[in-house]
Measured scan of single mutants.
Amino acid sequence: GREWTEQETLLLLEALEMYKDDWNKVSEHVGSRTQDECILHFLR
Rank of each mutant, 00 (worst) to 15 (best):
G1K: 12
G1L: 09
G1C: 04
G1N: 14
R2W: 10
R2M: 15
R2D: 14
R2Y: 10
R2S: 07
R2F: 14
E3K: 12
E3L: 10
E3Q: 13
E3H: 13
E3Y: 14
E3C: 04
E3V: 15
W4E: 11
W4A: 06
W4C: 03
W4N: 05
W4V: 07
T5G: 01
T5W: 01
T5L: 07
T5I: 07
T5A: 04
E6G: 07
E6N: 07
E6I: 08
E6D: 07
E6F: 05
E6Q: 14
E6W: 07
E6A: 12
Q7V: 06
Q7M: 15
E8H: 03
E8R: 00
E8F: 01
E8C: 02
E8N: 02
E8M: 03
E8D: 01
E8G: 00
E8S: 00
T9H: 10
T9S: 10
T9K: 13
T9A: 09
T9P: 03
L10Y: 04
L10D: 15
L10E: 12
L10V: 10
L10I: 10
L10N: 06
L10S: 13
L10P: 05
L10A: 10
L11D: 07
L11S: 11
L11I: 05
L11E: 05
L12Q: 04
L12H: 04
L12V: 05
L12I: 06
L12W: 05
L12Y: 08
L12F: 11
L12K: 03
L12G: 11
L12C: 04
L13F: 09
E14C: 01
E14L: 02
E14G: 05
E14P: 00
A15V: 00
A15R: 00
A15M: 01
L16S: 12
L16I: 12
L16K: 15
L16C: 14
L16Y: 15
L16G: 09
L16M: 14
E17H: 04
E17C: 01
E17S: 05
E17L: 02
E17G: 06
E17T: 07
E17V: 03
E17K: 13
M18R: 13
M18L: 12
M18Q: 12
M18D: 09
M18P: 02
M18K: 09
M18H: 10
Y19L: 01
Y19I: 01
Y19T: 05
Y19N: 07
Y19H: 12
Y19E: 06
K20I: 10
K20Y: 04
K20C: 04
K20R: 06
K20W: 01
K20D: 09
K20M: 08
D21I: 02
D21T: 07
D21W: 02
D21S: 09
D21P: 11
D21Q: 12
D21C: 08
D21Y: 05
D22K: 14
D22G: 04
D22V: 03
D22Y: 01
D22C: 08
W23F: 07
W23E: 02
W23V: 01
W23R: 01
N24A: 11
N24E: 11
N24T: 10
N24W: 07
N24Q: 13
K25I: 03
K25R: 12
K25H: 09
K25A: 12
K25E: 08
K25L: 12
K25C: 09
V26F: 09
V26H: 01
V26K: 02
V26S: 03
V26N: 03
S27V: 11
S27R: 11
S27W: 02
S27L: 04
S27H: 12
S27K: 13
E28A: 03
E28D: 15
E28T: 09
E28K: 05
E28Y: 04
E28R: 10
E28C: 07
E28N: 06
H29K: 05
H29F: 07
H29N: 07
H29P: 00
H29Q: 08
H29Y: 10
H29M: 06
V30T: 04
V30R: 00
V30Q: 01
V30H: 00
G31Q: 03
G31K: 12
G31Y: 03
G31E: 11
G31M: 09
G31I: 07
S32D: 13
S32G: 13
S32R: 07
S32A: 10
S32W: 02
S32I: 08
S32V: 07
S32H: 08
S32C: 08
S32Y: 07
R33N: 00
R33Y: 01
R33I: 00
R33C: 00
R33D: 00
T34V: 08
T34W: 04
T34C: 05
T34G: 11
T34P: 06
T34H: 04
T34S: 08
Q35I: 07
Q35N: 12
Q35C: 12
Q35Y: 07
D36W: 05
D36E: 10
D36C: 08
D36M: 04
D36R: 10
D36V: 04
E37M: 04
E37V: 00
E37S: 03
E37Q: 05
E37R: 02
E37H: 02
C38M: 00
C38L: 03
C38A: 02
I39K: 15
I39N: 15
I39D: 10
I39C: 13
I39P: 04
I39M: 14
I39W: 05
I39Q: 14
I39F: 10
L40C: 13
L40R: 13
L40A: 14
L40Y: 14
L40F: 09
H41F: 07
H41C: 09
H41Y: 13
H41G: 04
H41P: 02
H41V: 05
H41R: 10
H41K: 14
F42M: 07
F42W: 15
F42L: 05
F42K: 15
F42R: 15
F42H: 15
L43M: 13
L43G: 15
L43V: 14
L43A: 14
L43D: 15
L43H: 15
L43F: 13
L43W: 12
